[in-house]
Design a protein around this nucleic acid. Structure first.
Lengths: 173, 173
DNA sequence: ATCAGTCAAGAACGACCGTTCCTCAATTGG
DNA sequence: CCAATTGAGGAACGGTCGTTCTTGACTGAT
């Protein structure tokens, strides 16, 4: 019984993730969310409890639906080198929210810190499988993050990471 | 004539940079600044014009007094490898404000974007001088940034970058 | 000693923050 | 078809935001 929901919860989370990926947490107001998500304040608080609750839902969705698939592909692909190269391409948006979460939310929110720490370990593991020397995986994960980070400031060569990757591959086992 | 200033402008800028390096721009309030800097609101607006004005002054000071010396040392040192290794060590705080500026201010503030783009080019140039293959410098700069980024989320091995560096050096010309 | 000029001190501004409340519309089980 | 239940709508809450104004204390030149 009762009036049925007039919005798709997953779509709302997806749109929230997009918004939180573009600006810092404190830079996204509840008014912004209500306006761009098309959901009423009341429903938003009913479903997610708070702005932080919606943020955490958006972050979890992003890690599960945007980041994890990329890692799964890297783990199962027949051509790991191509997968790595794709990750090292900076003109993508499948790590933006993760980077913003690491830089500005993790230091202030333990739950965010735990979430991103877990996913970064997964990235390390996936990257390691595609490398001649597994020990450099954490550093290469950092390179991936750093290239995306640079892209946010504009003016980065999209294939800067490819050069490093070839250097590593040509020298490794 | 007039009453002399009761605070050291440089010290205020330095303290502001420290605060802006620890939290996102919108997470630092003018009240926070007034309290921890020990400067009165009035003086702050008189000298810097606005919160953004103080932020830009802090960023410029940080880039000139904290980042540039590291690059200068890397350019002039007799042991470039050691300098690079130091930069690849993640438990330092001489890039925090730069990273935060790149991630969350540059996309929203053109002046910040220009400042950090310039300094990133300087980092590339300094790093390139210390490498066997100059072309991988932008990627290694990204690695440096990425390692510091990961350090903000906690639980990173401080020497993760060293492994990559040795890998590169042992294989290059 | 006086006066112009600068700074310190803190109250106060309107705007916006995240959150809650109240009322009405829509739906389904009886 | 009516009662019960839930979402939508929008005003409103206290608090905090960045910024400004008013007042008085201090200083150096006249």
């Amino acid at each position: 019984m009762g009036r049925p929901r007039a919005f798709d919860e997953t779509e709302v989370i997806r749109a929230a993730a997009e918004l939180f990926a573009s600006r810092a947490y404190d830079g996204v107001s509840v008014d912004d969310l209500v306006t761009t998500l098309g959901v009423h304040r009341n429903s938003l608080y009913k479903v997610f409890g708070s702005k932080r609750g919606l943020y955490l839902a958006a972050l979890r969705w992003y890690l599960a639906e945007r980041v994890s698939p990329v890692l799964a592909e890297l783990r199962t692909t027949a051509d790991p080198a191509a997968g790595l190269q794709a990750l090292l391409t900076s003109d993508r948006d499948d790590l933006d929210l993760l980077i913003l979460a690491v830089v500005e939310r993790a230091p202030a929110d333990q739950e965010v810190a735990d979430l991103v720490a877990g996913v970064l370990r997964e990235v390390d593991a996936a990257v390691a499988r595609a490398l001649p020397a597994e020990a450099i995986a954490p550093a290469l994960t950092a390179t991936i993050l750093g290239l995306r980070l640079r892209a946010r400031a504009g003016g980065t060569a999209p294939d800067a990471g490819t050069v490093l990757l070839h250097h590593i591959q040509s020298s490794g086992t």
